[in-house]
Computed example of a mutant assay.
Amino acid sequence: MKKYRYFMDIDSEEQWLNKMAYKGCELEGRGLLSYRFADEASSDNSTIRIDYRTFTHPEDFTDYRTLFEDSGWKHLFSSQGLHYFRKEDANASDDIFSDTESRAGRYKRLLQSYFALSFLFLSFILILYTTKALTIDLFIRPQSLYYTPGLWDKTGAAFIRAFLFETPIALMRGGAGWIVLFSALSFFYLFMKTYKKYRKCLYVQ
């Protein structure tokens, strides 16, 4: 069974997965915009937790998994630095983090990732702008993407034919700029949101 969802917040994703687990939906994997659950309902509605961490060496990842499994948490799968765990031991803690410091560490690692991605996309925007590949007109005058001479002076069927012919090309010209801008703003938003959670964890300490 597949469920299509997109989360910009790791805590919201975790809450939703636990609601699905409560309904008997056993998590098996995930794609870019989808989650895969076992076809048959499970009577085991164990808790799901998510951590974020990257590894340079395979043995570090093996030690990481072993540490959690020894604590009663089964590693289900990993996706883009996110690691999904399910509580297997009824006597294990309800959280994979033993204290607020380790929980704050997860947010700190996410912060570093979001900052790097924000910086990357903002740098890309600057490069495109300085090389004239991206201009302000793209955002305030979308019609500047249309290069057909005299297009906006045409009327009737002639205008419609010319407009429809060039629109796909114009979208390809402008699409990249909008995607880069949206990505930069999205990662910056995630950075600020995660920073607030990180600060909150430190305050709780």
Rank of each mutant, 00 (worst) to 15 (best):
S43E: 14
T47M: 13
D9V: 07
D60P: 03
D44L: 06
R49T: 03
T56W: 10
E14F: 08
S42K: 07
Y35C: 00
P58K: 04
D60L: 03
S42G: 05
Y52F: 15
F37D: 04
D39V: 07
S46M: 02
K3M: 11
S34I: 04
D39K: 07
Y6R: 14
R49A: 12
L33K: 14
G31D: 14
P58T: 04
D51M: 01
C25M: 08
R49W: 06
K19G: 04
S46T: 07
E40A: 14
D9M: 12
K23A: 15
L32S: 08
M8A: 08
L33G: 07
A38R: 09
Q15W: 05
D44W: 03
N18S: 04
L27Q: 01
S34A: 02
R36L: 07
F61W: 08
N18P: 02
D11H: 14
D51Q: 01
I48M: 04
F55K: 01
S46I: 01
F7H: 04
T56L: 11
K23E: 15
R5N: 07
Q15F: 11
G29Y: 14
Y6G: 06
S43L: 14
K2S: 04
Q15R: 11
D60K: 10
L17E: 03
D51F: 00
S34D: 13
E13H: 03
D39A: 07
F37W: 05
R36F: 11
F37K: 02
I48S: 01
D9Q: 10
T54I: 09
S34G: 02
P58E: 06
C25K: 06
E13I: 05
C25I: 00
D9G: 05
E26Y: 14
D60G: 12
D11I: 15
T62Q: 13
N45L: 09
D11A: 11
G24H: 03
I10D: 00
A38E: 15
E40H: 13
C25G: 00
A41P: 00
E59W: 13
Y22S: 09
D9S: 10
D9A: 08
S43H: 05
P58Q: 04
E40S: 09
F7E: 01
